Simulated scan of single mutants.
Amino acid sequence: MESWNRMSTDSVRSHTPDGVNRKIDARVEKCVQAMAEQMDRPAISEYLRKLEHEWDLNRVVTVAASAVSVLGLVLAAKDGRGWKIVSGVAAGLLLQHGLFGFGPLSELVRALGVRTRKEIDLEKFALKALRGDFERIPHEGGPLARANAALVAAQS
Score class of each variant (00 low, 15 high):
residue 1 M to R: 08
residue 1 M to P: 15
residue 2 E to G: 06
residue 5 N to E: 11
residue 6 R to W: 03
residue 7 M to S: 14
residue 12 V to G: 00
residue 13 R to K: 01
residue 19 G to D: 07
residue 24 I to Q: 14
residue 28 V to C: 03
residue 30 K to S: 12
residue 31 C to E: 09
residue 33 Q to W: 08
residue 36 A to E: 02
residue 37 E to R: 11
residue 37 E to D: 06
residue 38 Q to F: 09
residue 47 Y to E: 15
residue 48 L to E: 10
residue 51 L to I: 15
residue 56 D to I: 04
residue 57 L to P: 05
residue 58 N to S: 04
residue 58 N to I: 01
residue 61 V to K: 13
residue 63 V to A: 11
residue 68 V to K: 00
residue 68 V to E: 02
residue 69 S to L: 01
residue 70 V to Y: 02
residue 74 V to N: 01
residue 75 L to D: 03
residue 76 A to E: 10
residue 80 G to R: 04
residue 80 G to L: 09
residue 82 G to Q: 11
residue 82 G to E: 12
residue 83 W to Q: 05
residue 85 I to Q: 13
residue 87 S to C: 06
residue 87 S to T: 09
residue 89 V to K: 08
residue 90 A to K: 00
residue 91 A to H: 07
residue 94 L to K: 06
residue 97 H to E: 05
residue 99 L to C: 13
residue 100 F to R: 10
residue 101 G to T: 01
residue 102 F to S: 10
residue 103 G to V: 02
residue 103 G to M: 07
residue 106 S to Q: 01
residue 107 E to N: 02
residue 109 V to E: 06
residue 112 L to Q: 09
residue 113 G to V: 01
residue 116 T to E: 07
residue 118 K to D: 14
residue 118 K to L: 12
residue 120 I to H: 03
residue 122 L to F: 05
residue 125 F to V: 10
residue 132 G to S: 07
residue 133 D to R: 10
residue 135 E to H: 08
residue 139 H to Q: 06
residue 143 P to E: 06
residue 146 R to D: 04
residue 147 A to G: 02
residue 148 N to T: 15
residue 148 N to I: 10
residue 152 V to A: 09
residue 153 A to I: 14
